[in-house]
Amino acid sequence: DETGKFLVLALYDYQEKSPREVTMKKGDILTLLNSTNKDWWKVEVNGRQGFVPAAYVKFL
């Protein structure tokens, strides 16, 4: 149950560059965990948590 969690859509592919980031593919649906930083949002994708560039995702 994803109640209270926001979902975001990956607009572009992103390859993680550090262990704190996660890789996503364009079209992936991600669970948004934290968006307090304007540049990097914490998400969960494929069972992994990490950061992606905020400009690469949008709210569903």
Rank of each mutant, 00 (worst) to 15 (best):
D1I: 13
D1Q: 15
D1W: 08
D1P: 14
E2A: 14
E2K: 13
E2L: 11
E2G: 14
E2N: 13
T3E: 13
T3G: 13
G4I: 13
G4K: 14
K5S: 11
K5F: 12
K5T: 12
K5I: 13
F6D: 11
F6P: 12
F6A: 12
F6C: 15
F6L: 13
F6W: 14
F6V: 15
F6I: 15
L7C: 10
L7Y: 15
L7R: 10
L7T: 08
L7I: 10
V8S: 03
V8E: 01
V8C: 11
V8A: 10
V8I: 09
L9V: 15
L9R: 08
L9E: 13
A10F: 03
A10S: 05
A10K: 01
L11M: 12
L11N: 04
L11E: 06
Y12W: 11
D13L: 02
D13V: 02
D13S: 08
Y14E: 01
Y14W: 11
Y14F: 08
Y14D: 01
Q15K: 12
Q15Y: 15
Q15S: 11
E16M: 12
E16C: 10
E16T: 08
E16Y: 04
E16D: 04
K17L: 10
K17V: 09
K17G: 09
S18E: 09
S18Y: 06
S18F: 07
S18H: 11
S18A: 09
P19N: 11
R20G: 15
R20N: 14
R20F: 15
E21Q: 10
E21N: 05
E21I: 03
E21V: 05
E21R: 04
E21H: 06
V22S: 02
V22E: 00
V22C: 07
V22Q: 03
V22M: 09
V22W: 03
T23I: 03
T23Y: 03
T23E: 04
T23V: 03
M24S: 01
M24V: 11
M24N: 00
M24R: 00
M24W: 01
M24I: 15
M24D: 00
K25S: 10
K25V: 10
K25W: 08
K25R: 14
K26G: 05
K26Q: 11
K26L: 05
K26N: 04
G27F: 05
D28G: 03
D28R: 02
D28F: 04
I29W: 05
I29M: 07
I29Y: 06
L30V: 08
L30W: 01
L30P: 01
L30H: 02
T31W: 11
L32W: 03
L32Q: 00
L32F: 05
L32S: 02
L32I: 07
L32N: 00
L33W: 04
L33D: 01
L33G: 01
L33C: 06
L33F: 04
L33A: 02
N34F: 06
N34R: 06
N34Q: 10
N34V: 08
N34K: 07
N34A: 09
N34Y: 06
N34H: 07
N34E: 15
N34I: 07
S35R: 10
S35M: 14
S35Y: 11
S35E: 07
S35F: 10
T36H: 12
T36N: 13
N37A: 08
N37K: 05
N37I: 06
N37P: 04
N37H: 13
K38A: 11
K38W: 06
K38S: 12
K38H: 11
D39H: 14
D39I: 14
W40G: 00
W40R: 03
W40L: 04
W40D: 01
W41E: 00
W41F: 10
W41V: 09
K42L: 15
K42G: 06
K42D: 04
K42C: 12
V43L: 03
V43C: 04
V43M: 02
V43F: 01
E44W: 06
E44T: 07
E44I: 08
V45Q: 10
N46F: 07
N46A: 10
N46Q: 11
G47K: 05
G47D: 07
G47Q: 06
G47I: 03
G47H: 05
G47Y: 05
G47N: 07
G47R: 04
R48N: 07
R48L: 07
R48K: 13
Q49N: 08
Q49I: 15
G50N: 00
G50Y: 02
G50Q: 01
G50S: 02
F51V: 07
F51I: 07
F51A: 02
F51Q: 03
F51Y: 15
F51S: 03
F51E: 04
F51K: 02
V52F: 01
V52H: 00
P53G: 02
P53Y: 02
P53W: 03
A54K: 07
A54S: 12
A55T: 12
A55Y: 10
A55P: 07
A55E: 13
A55R: 13
Y56A: 12
Y56R: 05
Y56M: 12
Y56D: 05
V57M: 06
V57I: 11
V57Q: 00
V57T: 04
V57W: 01
V57L: 15
F59M: 14
F59Y: 13
L60K: 05
